[in-house]
């Protein structure tokens, strides 16, 4: 199959993957809390119900911006799999996330705005890592595309242990898991109500959910980049990483934004930065 076909497949299969992942997540989280939990397909039922509901908006630009959020999340995956330069993907990924911030910010209401600002803070926290990770992967493998990295004889994770470690930390932000779920939370008992989704309902909320599923699939694809010997190996690594995330999610409270920013930057600087520095020094 050509890379373009993978790209198209991503558009259709990533939501299925993300939704199932969310279903498993909710089930496992419930069991960790001693509850029975919802059916496995509950996220899909929820999405269906959200789409059926009356769509009420505070202003008319929210919907286009959220569509942009979904679209660019999907585009990031398509570009990644269809062989676009990895470092460029990091920028597109940030653009996709930015659309969510703008949608929430455009509402101009106290809670959505504070959520949007916090999302900007976590973008600021996570973005350096993704640029650095992509650059490091390119440096290690000498390739610049997804297929190229997968074809490389080097096992990236072995060369980039620090980046892998920082990835686990930063993925907590992107997967919206405690302790880093500061801009939104799956149940709204936080100081910002529902953070940046506070003023979104019905169809709007469905877009956010859908984009998050794409995002999860994208993170999985990133994990495959780190374990590039085979796709099943990458999937296994992602499953283990996700299980860890769920466990930590159920074992910590939500951090404050200052700690999120500081710890993520420190991890990026020390673990991935140190890793990249070593890589450059040794490859001389």
């Amino acid at each position: 199959m050509t890379p373009a076909v993978y790209g198209v497949l991503f558009v259709f299969l990533a939501p299925v993957f993300g939704g199932l992942l969310a279903g498993v997540d909710r089930r496992v989280s419930a069991r960790m809390q001693g509850r029975i939990g919802p059916p496995l397909l509950q996220p899909f039922y929820d999405l269906g119900k959200l789409l059926q509901k009356q769509a009420r908006q505070v202003n008319p630009v929210v919907e286009p911006l959220l569509l942009g959020h979904v679209f660019f999340m999907a585009v990031s995956g398509v570009l990644l799999l269809s062989g676009t330069d990895l470092i460029f993907i990091a920028f597109v990924f940030a653009l996709a996330a930015l659309f969510l911030v703008l949608a929430a910010g455009s509402v101009n209401s106290p809670y959505s705005f504070a959520g949007a600002e916090r999302e900007l803070v976590v973008l600021l926290a996570s973005e350096p890592f993704f640029i650095l990770m992509m650059a490091a992967i390119c440096k290690v493998t000498g390739a610049s595309t997804y297929a190229g990295v997968l074809a490389s004889p080097q096992l990236v994770a072995v060369q980039l242990p620090g980046v892998l470690l920082a990835f686990l930390l930063v993925a907590t932000i992107k997967l919206r898991k405690s302790p880093f779920d500061i801009s939104t939370s799956h149940h709204p008992h936080q100081e910002l109500v529902s953070g940046l989704t506070t003023d979104m309902s019905g169809r709007m909320l469905a877009y956010v959910e859908l984009a998050h599923w794409y995002e999860s699939a994208l993170l999985c694809a990133f994990m495959v980049l780190l374990f590039n010997w085979s796709v099943p190996l990458g999937l296994l690594a992602f499953a283990i990483a996700y299980a860890l995330e769920v466990l930590v999610d159920n074992s910590t409270s939500r951090a404050k934004w200052q700690l999120v920013l500081r710890s993520t930057w420190a991890a990026t600087l020390v673990f991935s930065g140190g890793n990249v520095l070593a890589l450059f020094l040794l490859s001389r």
């Binding site: 989280s29 960790m32 809390q33 001693g34 509850r35 405690s178 302790p179 779920d181 939370s185 149940h187 008992h189 936080q190 100081e191 159920n250 074992s251 910590t252 409270s253 939500r254």
Partner: peptide, 16 residues
């Protein structure tokens, strides 16, 4: 309190 600082699991245990 646990729920307010985002520790859902602990909330469940207290309420159980």
């Amino acid at each position: 309190g646990a729920d307010a600082f985002g520790f859902e699991n602990l909330f469940m245990h207290c309420w159980r």
